[in-house]
């Protein structure tokens, strides 16, 4: 049973991870949902003790470990919350970028990058003339006596 739970968790996570790497943002959300399921099922699998539901327990009864269940409840709710937020983000991104593909999102970044080139060159200049720019700019020329 341990192996079975571990395998299920692994498949959920692995498949989720694979989806996260997709271009389609919706699939990315699906990936996060799967990974969230993986966490919950792992928490339940981490129960110490199995049996009937821990309700009105008489001493000595074999019951299912209630603590992981409480944790799983919390994890489920938090999963719902975060997935909803992620969905909203994706939705907003789709509205703004007019695409659900990640690559296109990165393209806007490239434009920003290109705009920075001028400033980068300015930065480089702050440390002095580039060697290839040739020459002792401020040191006197080698034949310094020459009047201009």
């Amino acid at each position: 049973m341990i192996l079975a739970f571990a395998l299920a968790a692994a498949f959920l996570f692995g498949s989720g991870a694979y989806l996260l790497l997709k271009r389609d943002l919706i699939r990315m959300v699906a990936g996060i949902m799967l990974i969230s399921q993986c966490a919950v099922v792992t928490i339940i699998a981490a129960s110490l003790g199995r049996g009937r539901a821990a309700i009105a327990v008489a001493p000595g009864d074999p019951v299912s470990d209630p603590l992981p269940q409480a944790l799983a409840l919390t994890a489920l709710v938090i999963g719902l919350a975060t997935v909803a937020l992620l969905l909203a983000l994706v939705h907003r991104a789709v509205v703004v970028f007019r695409t659900a593909e990640q690559d296109r999102l990165a393209a806007t970044e490239a434009a920003h990058e290109a705009a920075l080139e001028r400033e980068r060159r300015a930065d480089r200049e702050e440390v002095g003339p580039a060697p290839e720019e040739a020459g002792p700019a401020e040191e006197e020329p080698a034949d310094g006596g020459r009047a201009r």
Binding site: A6, F13, G14, S15, C38, A45
Partner: peptide
Amino acid sequence: RDAIAGGVAGVAVFASVWGFLS
């Protein structure tokens, strides 16, 4: 490549989860 990355992640989770469940 994606499948490999996903597979690596899955195997790693498998190893850890199985490890601590054991």
